[in-house]
Amino acid sequence: MIQQSPIQRPRAKSRRGTAIVEFAVCLPLLALLVFGTIEAASRIFLKQTLSISAYEAARQAIRVGSTTENSKASGDSILTARKVKGSQIVFSPADITNASRGELISVSVSAPTRDNSQVLGKFIADKTITATVVMVKE
């Protein structure tokens, strides 16, 4: 059995201490990176959900004989299925029932980021994300 010299033993202990300090410095950065990535993905998901909801509401709104209530319900069904909170759907013109053929119908869907955040909503500034779709009435 080969014995280690007394000079090598203290180095192993000091290296262990260095590793602990490096871990303590890197852990907050790693946690920030992980939670930031989750929050960014959550905002991308929210923006995509709002876009899909606006598209579905506009698609319903341009049909012949469609009402504002039917179109709003079509958009709300997407938002409800994806559990979006605090959303608002706005039509232009406000009453699409009397819109004539060829008229532009605009649908805007918006939601606050704080209410729909997965992790860091209380720590990041609240913003409202909006998606707008414009289609021609049939």
Rank of each mutant, 00 (worst) to 15 (best):
M1F: 11
I2H: 08
Q4P: 00
S5V: 12
S5H: 00
P6R: 00
I7Q: 05
I7C: 03
Q8L: 13
Q8V: 07
R9D: 12
P10F: 09
A12R: 13
A12P: 09
K13A: 15
S14P: 15
S14R: 00
R15D: 15
R15Q: 15
R16H: 12
R16I: 05
R16C: 00
G17T: 01
T18A: 13
I20C: 15
I20Q: 14
V21I: 09
E22K: 10
E22Y: 06
V25E: 09
C26I: 10
L27T: 12
L29R: 04
L29A: 03
L32D: 08
L32N: 04
L32A: 15
V34H: 08
V34A: 15
F35N: 00
F35Y: 08
T37A: 06
T37V: 04
I38S: 09
E39I: 06
E39C: 11
A41W: 11
S42R: 00
S42W: 07
I44W: 15
I44Y: 15
I44C: 14
F45H: 00
K47W: 06
Q48M: 07
Q48F: 05
Q48E: 13
Q48S: 04
T49M: 07
L50I: 04
I52N: 02
S53F: 04
A54R: 07
A54V: 01
Y55W: 10
Y55T: 13
Y55N: 13
E56T: 01
E56D: 02
Q60L: 10
R63T: 02
R63P: 10
R63N: 05
V64H: 08
V64G: 11
G65M: 11
S66F: 07
S66L: 03
T68R: 08
E69L: 07
N70P: 03
S71A: 05
K72V: 06
K72E: 01
S74P: 10
I78V: 01
L79H: 05
A81T: 05
R82I: 08
K83C: 01
V84I: 01
V84N: 05
K85Y: 04
K85D: 06
G86K: 07
G86Y: 10
I89T: 06
I89E: 01
V90C: 06
V90S: 07
V90R: 10
F91S: 07
P93L: 00
P93W: 11
A94D: 06
I96M: 11
N98H: 14
N98D: 15
N98T: 14
A99N: 05
R101T: 10
L104K: 13
S110H: 08
S110L: 09
S110E: 14
P112G: 02
P112Y: 05
D115Q: 06
Q118T: 12
Q118H: 14
V119R: 01
G121S: 06
G121F: 03
G121K: 09
I124M: 07
I124A: 08
A125E: 03
D126S: 07
K127C: 12
T128C: 07
T128H: 13
I129V: 02
A131E: 10
A131K: 11
T132R: 13
T132F: 12
T132L: 08
V133G: 11
V133I: 12
V134Q: 02
M135N: 10
V136L: 05
K137F: 02
K137Q: 14
K137H: 11
